[in-house]
Simulated scan of single mutants.
Amino acid sequence: MCFRLGTHIGQHERLCLGEKFRCPTCRHEVILDRHGVYGLQRNLLVENIIDIYKQDYSRPEKKKENHPMCEKHEDERINIYCITCQVPTCSMCKVFGAHKDCEVSPLQNIYQTQKTELSNCISMLVAGNDRIQSILGQLEELCKSVKENSQKKKDSVNEVFEEMSRVLEEKKADLVQRVSQAEEEKIDFVRTLIAKYQEQIQSSSNLLQSALQASEQAGHATFLLEIQTAY
């Protein structure tokens, strides 16, 4: 039986000894003894809900106006939190409604707990954002460093290839000059040989001419003199 004297004494103090009635929550039949309603079993949960209900209504009217109301019980403010369903609800929903078998807690307790958790999450997010911002700064510096180092490498490569190109041009010019010089030397040598062979041909032609003339002489003495002169 879940009916409590502390929560319903105003409604049932008129009941008489031996009178029967049913608990409005569990529908268990109760018979009053000589103690009357004061002999009923106490329901601490309902008493706590009533205490919360009284505290809420004892607050200034300005706060009451902004307080959300229960959708199921339009006259009841949301003042407890259903831990089982993880939703805020009202006292009537706990006593008679959908949350009567659920575990509940005062709304203020859950509010403080979740507010603390939210504050911790916000602090973690802020700290995480700071760390990410720091990492982003480091990555930006890394990009800058990579660009600077890459530019230095490019300049170094260009300098090396420009030096190699200069050396190759000098080597090319030297080789071309050597080839040209060798060409001139060989041509001069060949031309000298040509001149010598031309002189030899001319000498041979002259000798041949003299020999022919000598062969045409009739006398022996004249022939021998011509031959001697030719040689």
Rank of each mutant, 00 (worst) to 15 (best):
A218S: 13
E76H: 10
E170N: 03
Q138F: 02
H8I: 02
V95Q: 02
C70P: 15
I132F: 14
L142A: 03
A218H: 11
L224K: 05
E76C: 06
Q55E: 14
I187N: 02
I227Q: 03
D51Y: 07
A98H: 06
A211N: 08
S204P: 02
E159K: 00
G6T: 10
C16M: 04
K171F: 08
S210M: 08
A98L: 07
L40P: 00
N79D: 03
C121V: 15
G97R: 09
R22T: 00
E47L: 08
A173L: 04
Q86P: 04
F3M: 10
D155P: 04
H8K: 02
T192Y: 07
K147L: 15
Y197D: 08
E76I: 02
P88A: 01
E216S: 03
K153E: 12
G10N: 03
P88N: 05
E71A: 13
A182T: 06
R34Y: 12
L125T: 14
E140C: 04
M69Y: 15
E148G: 05
K115N: 15
L45M: 07
I187A: 13
V95C: 01
M164S: 02
L142W: 06
A98E: 10
V30R: 05
Q209H: 11
A221V: 12
L208Q: 13
Y111N: 13
D174R: 03
C90Q: 05
K64M: 07
D101H: 12
I49E: 00
M92S: 00
Y111T: 10
K54S: 09
H12C: 09
L224I: 14
L212N: 15
C121E: 12
M124R: 15
Q108R: 14
